[in-house]
Computed example of a mutant assay.
Amino acid sequence: MPRVTASGFELADGPVLVTGAAGFVARFLMEELRMGPGDIATDMTTDFTVPDGVTRVAWTLPSPPPVDLADVAFVVHLAAMTSVARSHGAALDYYHANAMGTVSLVDSLLEASSAARLLFVSSADVYGSVEGAIRESCPPNPASPYAGSKAAAEIAVLQAHRSAGLDAVIARPFPHFGPGQAPHFALPSFCRRVIEAAAAGAGSVKGGNLSAVRDYTYVSDVASAYSAILAAGASGEVYNVASGRGRTMGEVLEAVIGISGVRLEIETDPGLMRQADIASQVGDPSRLAELGWRPVVDFHEGLSRLYDWWRRSR
């Protein structure tokens, strides 16, 4: 019997393995894929929550796999170091974890003669800064060690597909957000700062580069996009995961202030500026839409959910 995901996409029967299962998106993806008995979730430790019946396994790439990959039908590779800002001072660590970790996983799949389909989750940061809607054909132009490590990992995946027949698809997610996201990312940081400013009776809140344009998608829609690519993506192809709508970070911060119901002025803080920041990053989701994917959660609804989560978590 095929596995039907929460969004209605059909996967062939067989176990699913997710790396980076303790991460932000993984919790939503495991629910989207309706993971259960026979499925495997891996991370550096086993101290994370999984759906009932899912086996938790400690696995730190690029070490050898602790499970038999020959028996797995689908692998979703989420495990990565993800902070763009922190990557500028830790390039070697990022290439080791993100690029070499992916090379190790690919080699392990090939050595096991696994017929598994691999979904490698890359990043829209590989594009760098591009004016207008970015299509998958846009050449990579990474502006950070994080982005460079993801671009290098993509090359390894595509090389294995072309030369060794690995069944692999690549997702390039644009910025996404939702409850549980780490506080160093922009939208959780905005929510935290606004909540703290409101609680302190401050008249202002600080932001960094507020002219930068970003394309945000809510996390559950990102999870459903991954299931669409896993189920129906063409092997060897790349798919943007994006809404197609860009907003300046100033507009996003204004929206958070609006949700708070408190009057706050916005101050630009040079200390919050990113090194080599990307001016514009808006994706064209047309190729993904051809697989039957559509976003469900409106941006402002998703932002309200994130704000409420942070308010309750204080």
Rank of each mutant, 00 (worst) to 15 (best):
R192V: 13
A234R: 15
I155W: 13
V213H: 05
A200C: 10
A232Y: 15
Y226Q: 13
A231R: 02
G207A: 09
A186P: 12
A160H: 02
A171K: 10
A152Y: 08
A242V: 01
G165L: 03
N240I: 00
A223D: 03
A225N: 03
A186G: 11
P188K: 02
S144E: 08
P179R: 02
S243G: 14
S211T: 15
A234D: 13
A147D: 04
D215H: 01
L158G: 10
A202V: 07
E154S: 06
L210I: 04
K150E: 11
R193K: 12
V205M: 05
G165R: 03
A212P: 09
G180W: 04
S227C: 08
G180K: 05
A152F: 03
F190W: 10
A182H: 14
P183K: 10
Q181I: 10
Y226S: 09
A231E: 03
S149N: 08
A164V: 08
I229W: 06
S224G: 12
F190T: 06
L166Q: 07
K150A: 06
G178H: 01
H176M: 15
S220D: 15
A197K: 05
L230V: 00
E196C: 08
L210Q: 08
S189Y: 09
A242I: 01
Y216V: 00
A186Y: 13
R162M: 11
A168H: 03
A182P: 08
V169R: 10
S211Y: 10
A231Q: 04
I170L: 14
D221R: 08
N209D: 15
I170T: 06
H176G: 12
L230E: 02
A225S: 05
D215S: 06
K206R: 15
H161L: 11
N209S: 14
V219P: 00
P183V: 12
A198H: 01
R193Q: 12
I195F: 10
A242G: 02
F174K: 00
A186Q: 11
P188L: 00
R193T: 03
S163N: 11
A152V: 06
G201Y: 02
A152M: 13
A151I: 09
A223P: 06
S227Q: 04
F177Q: 01
Y216F: 15
S163A: 12
Y146A: 05
A228P: 05
Y146G: 06
S243E: 13
R192S: 12
V222H: 08
